[in-house]
Amino acid sequence: MADEPLLIAENLQLSFGSTTALEHATAEVHAGEVLALMGPSGSGKSTLLHCMAGILLPDAGRVTYAGRDLTAMHDDERSALRRTEFGFVFQFGQLVPELTCLENVALPLRLGGASRRAALRSAEAWLERLEVSDVAGKRPGQASGGQGQRVAVARALVTRPKVVFADEPTGALDTVNGDRVMQLFVAAARDTGAAVVLVTHEPRVAAHSDREAVVRDGRVRQQELVR
């Protein structure tokens, strides 16, 4: 952890109208590290995650990924970055309902320009790795919630991103499924060397992380002083 962090958010400031969602929020992730963002509802966790991923632009402050300032990039550049370097898992409703699970996993590869056949081949491997090969030909609507989340995890990792952003990935799952998804997710991320920014309010889910940061009223509380 002595080396430079891979992704740094500094002094982020963001308001939606009169609500201040982020206020001097600062956070960093090192390569290969799993960071859990915790905190009460409405504290700004998702907003922070969106800013770090270059989905939202902060009003002030800077997000640096591998030395490049995300906030200064053109929108297309950030899109390309998200396509190639980042992966995403959300709580629900992220799979394209009309594509099969296999095609869903292949989608990011195809967006990145891979051929259809090659994309489907690696998608298949990822589905197998997350133990959901049996839903490959089904549409997301025909898979269970847990299977769907595994497909989503496979889709987030299929491009071998450097950072995976996960916002309550097990929020809609029961304990057993949630645990299994987290196990597979974190194991796969560690295998591929991806860093993970994980928003959760469940301590058991956060226990899969290397480090946690607590967001409260738009600020990140650093725990370093106690350690």
């Binding site: 301590p203 058991r204 956060a206 226990a207 899969h208 992380s209 290397d210 946690e212 607590v214 725990q223």
Partner: peptide
Amino acid sequence: DTQRAEHLRLMR
């Protein structure tokens, strides 16, 4: 927060 950090350490 302090207590959570401690708990999480053990939970990890």
